[in-house]
Design a protein around this nucleic acid. Structure first.
Lengths: 220, 220
DNA sequence: ACCAAAGCGGAGACACGTCTCCGATACGGC
DNA sequence: GCCGTATCGGAGACGTGTCTCCGCTTTGGT
């Protein structure tokens, strides 16, 4: 989401980088990967710098803050996750697709402890996050529309409702993941059964609109 | 949970308190109530002191930290909540009882913005919290046992599973509550339908044991 | 009215995370 | 090998929240 943005290098001057700078940048990403996997987003950029064997100033010159580093660390993981989610959204059976979609989105978050907080949005503005959110939204929209046509998902579920459920499962992973990293799988059937079309109840209250959902997601 | 612990005053010396001290204590609780309702547990004990018109030192002499103050502020609310939950646990139909139980536990959290974080556990050790947790656990146990007998709740749901779901709903309230304080009601049917006995799937993975659940609840 | 003790107030010590500044250093074109 | 400059490193400034210390004030019993 920062590197590898496409052919015909869009970064104007990133080629001119001294090799010690390149080495340090790589060391920072490697150290960040280790520390973030071990302890979520808790480690300080100062911590990462120390682990990488470089000075704090160096760390802050390469990445304006911890979240920018995390973004670089998890760029590939996010892209892989999105592709899996988009693949799930294309499945014939919408119920299966929804299950696969949750699987695709949650499994990486359970493996990479810092990914969840990063996806929820960085405190600072983040140009790449909007793109991720748009792609996820498209998946959910496809699944819900097809699920209604196939009468397998309750008709009154909105896009942001699925988003809220995703954020709840992500919270589950962050809170209880260190007790059992696969615990979220125990709750996925409960959730999916609750979303089935043959539910005996209907949903009260209005769903959140997209911007209200996104702004809270980012804040929380 | 701090005051009003029963007849025959158990506090040995709290009667000997000068009336200016008593006045300040009340002012602190009143100010805390206002600030916590408006902004959750974010306000500093220093903030509360300023709002109450007393010095910081006074605040810290009456309450060792912010959480102790919050506990005093919400003591009655918590007791009311517990009584409602225990009442719900006694309902004939266990499915109705479970719905009422969630209602009883979540509604106060939606009204009092700081209550959720307080219930989840204070950073410092909290003798009263264990009591609350025990009473809630008893409610859930009763409901689940009866729900299994009546074949209205899926048999593989454990006590801590309900606890996890409570914590997820509390998270929903804290994250999206300011967009719509009643949004949690929209997700309650999804959750309850997912817990019905006629669910077509069974739950994978083992449930958390109680101590693992509680320690994560407190940490998160 | 007096005074010992309870209570008050708020400056400031402390801890922690974030980020900047600038003298020292290493790179790489010549 | 030389030199201009990109880069480095880490002390420390800054912001924020928590909590303590101690000189001053108020209370309430005598």
């Amino acid at each position: 989401m920062d590197e590898s943005a496409g052919p015909a290098q869009p970064q104007p001057d990133r080629r001119t980088r001294r090799k010690d700078a390149e080495r340090n940048r790589s060391a920072l990403i490697a150290a960040g990967s280790e520390l973030f996997d071990a302890a979520g987003l808790l480690p300080t950029l100062d911590d990462v710098a120390r682990r990488a064997g470089v000075g704090v100033g160096t760390a802050y010159r390469h990445f304006p803050n911890k979240y920018a580093l995390a973004q670089a660390v998890f760029a590939e993981t996010v892209e892989t996750m999105l592709e899996a989610a988009e693949c799930a959204a294309k499945m014939e059976d919408a119920a299966d697709g929804l299950a696969a979609f949750f699987e695709a989105v949650l499994e990486p978050q359970a493996n990479k402890r810092a990914l969840g907080k990063l996806l929820r949005g960085t405190p600072t503005e983040d140009p790449g996050a909007g793109n991720v959110q748009a792609r996820v939204k498209r998946c959910i929209d496809q699944l819900l529309q097809r699920g209604r046509e196939q009468r397998v998902i309750r008709a009154d579920v909105a896009t942001t409702d699925v988003g809220v459920l995703m954020s709840l499962m992500a919270h589950l992973i962050e809170t209880f993941g260190d007790a059992n990293p696969r615990l979220w799988r125990r709750f996925l059937p409960i959730l999916l059964d609750g979303l089935r079309a043959d539910a005996p109840t209907s949903l009260p209250e209005q769903p959140l609109n997209t911007s209200a959902f996104l702004s809270r997601l980012t804040a929380g």
